[in-house]
């Protein structure tokens, strides 16, 4: 199987430092990074990819059982790193991908030399003595919202959503495309993301780690950022003056600067 094709891998930038792997979270695809890529690519080699089931990935490679666990997504990361023969790469994971990075670093320590966790949460659902911010019912409500937005989406739309240059008349349909995937796959990714609990995996992180959080994040509130920072020995916590869950979009300069400062510190 062609892993680079399967995960729609994009390589750009130049530099002799570690390769920076940018991993999107639940909802959209590698386009999420478009505002920070130029600043990073100026000095580092950058690898972008889509998880199977998202963006421009090969939907035929979907395996519901594999992707019903974060380990399945981590396997995508390890396979992409191996295919690119990356060593000591810096894995930048947004949202749920931050935890995928933790799992991938544990599975292939020679491939991943550092982690940047952007708006991470190891567990979204409240638990005794832990506040993730959501209840299991909230997650069901998200799934219902997903479903109502995918109404009318069908397998016939897949080629359109995956970018069909031959049929410009369908361009209108592409308006909301960066965050459109097969609804069945999106549902599985949503469940896997929001019902996972990776808190126990944090203490196993041994690589240099940067935790980036926003001042106002409805999905990963600051107390969760503090929890992650405290659980990973030696990690650094940077709070970006940004709102929302996607600082790489709402505060791209600040995000890029924080990542670059961390990268420079590794050398």
């Amino acid at each position: 199987m062609d892993i680079l094709r399967r995960n729609n891998v994009t390589l750009l930038g130049s530099g002799d430092g570690p390769v920076v792997v940018l991993a999107h979270g639940f909802g959209c695809d590698q386009n999420m990074w478009r505002l920070v890529v130029p600043a990073l690519a100026e000095r580092y080699r950058v690898a972008l990819f889509d998880y199977v089931g998202s963006g421009g990935s090969d939907l035929a490679a979907w395996d519901e059982q594999r992707y019903s666990s974060l380990h399945g997504y981590a396997q995508d990361v390890v396979e992409v790193c191996r295919e690119l023969d990356l060593r000591e790469a810096v894995f930048v994971g947004h949202s749920v991908s931050a935890m995928v990075g933790v799992l991938a670093a544990g599975a292939a320590p020679e491939r991943i030399g550092a982690l940047v966790m952007v708006a991470p949460s190891p567990c979204y659902v409240d638990d005794e003595g832990y506040r993730g911010g959501f209840s299991a019912e909230d997650i069901e409500e998200l799934l219902a919202t997903l479903e109502s937005n995918y109404l009318g989406w069908s397998a016939a739309m897949a080629p359109v959503i995956m970018g069909n240059a031959d049929r410009p008349e369908l361009g209108r349909e592409l308006t909301n495309s960066f965050c459109a995937t097969d609804p069945d796959m999106a549902r599985v990714f949503a469940r896997t993301t929001f019902l996972s609990d990776s808190r126990d995996d944090l203490k196993g992180v041994t690589v240099p780690t940067l935790v980036l959080e926003c001042t106002q994040d409805a999905i990963a509130p600051r107390e969760v950022g503090a929890y992650v920072h405290a659980a990973i020995p030696g990690s650094r916590l940077v709070t970006l003056d940004a709102t929302g869950h996607c600082p790489q979009l709402s505060a791209p300069e600040a995000t890029a600067q924080a990542v670059l400062a961390f990268l420079d510190g590794l050398r």
Partner: peptide, 24 residues
């Protein structure tokens, strides 16, 4: 928004709006 709506907003709506300048 409801909590589900909020989650959808943060994971889909807001990124799309930032990237495209409009969402419909």
């Amino acid at each position: 928004l409801t909590v589900g709506g909020k989650l959808y907003h943060e994971t889909h709506f807001a990124p799309l709006l930032r990237m495209q300048g409009e969402v419909h």
